[in-house]
Every structure is written in C-alpha cells, then in structure tokens.
Amino acid sequence: MIKVYTSSVIDAGADSVWARIRDFNALPLWHPGIADSRIENNEPSDRVGCIRHFHTRDGGMIRERLLALSDYDFSCSYEILESPMGVEHYVATLKLTPVTDGNRCFAEWSAEFDCDEGRERELTDTIGTGVFQTGFDALKRHFARR
C-alpha cells in the first residue's frame, strides 16, 4: 500500500474553504487540473455513494465515488473507480482543521493505493504534487486575492 500525504495552511477560515471544496461536483471550479465534472445518475453531489465523472485538462477521464462527507469534521473521502493512472484500491481524504490563532486553516489531502512495482515514486509525485499540492496552491491563490 502506497501512502501520499500533502498538507498546507490556507489563509481563510475552515468554513470558507470548506464552502469552496465541499461540493463533490465542484472540482473544475477550484482545481486548475480539472476540465469538467458531472454527477452520474442525476444524484445530488452530497449524497454519500454518488459518483463524479470528470475529465482532467490533459484529457484523462476519472470516475470517483464519494465514501464519506462530514460537515462536522470538514472532511471528505472518495475512491477511484476508473482512471488512466494505473492505481488500485485508491482511497483519498481531503480534510480541513481550523487553526485557532488567526483566520486560517490546516488542509490535509492524503491517499492510499496499490500500483505496479517501480511506479511508486512517479505516482507519489503525480498525486502528491500534481494533484494535491496544485489544488492547495489554487486555494491559497483564491483566498489571497480576496
């Protein structure tokens, strides 16, 4: 099992950041790597079990199922059902924690998965930096502008 962990501090309250990322169908609105997204079967995007079907900007199609959503913990977990990345048993969690001294929050994005031997480093970089850190950087830019 490979683990990837990326964390950051975003200069906005956890509730503001959560409002931006809570919607399971909102990736294209805040993550620069995502081109489009829809929820399959007309389900609401906060129904646990719903599936988002989206494309990355480089054309890859990914389907992910929402496994957990908590407005109390500001956290959301999901698994990959289909993707071009070559990962198996991929489960990721995105979570915010308020930082009580100042209007900012601690953001964590982690994933566990299996992959072919020899691809660990490449996938760890792609996911940890290319997906997670890129997302955090976009959030930091967004909240810095306001």
Binding site: Y5, T6, S7, V9, T97, E108, Q133, F136
Partner: peptide, 12 residues
C-alpha cells in the same frame, strides 16, 4: 502534523 507545503508543523 507536518505542513508538507513549507516544512512547518501544525500543532493541535
């Protein structure tokens, strides 16, 4: 917890 973006520490 480690803040991987900057090598800092989140303390709860």
């Amino acid at each position: 917890k480690p803040v991987t973006d900057g090598n800092r520490t989140f303390w709860h």
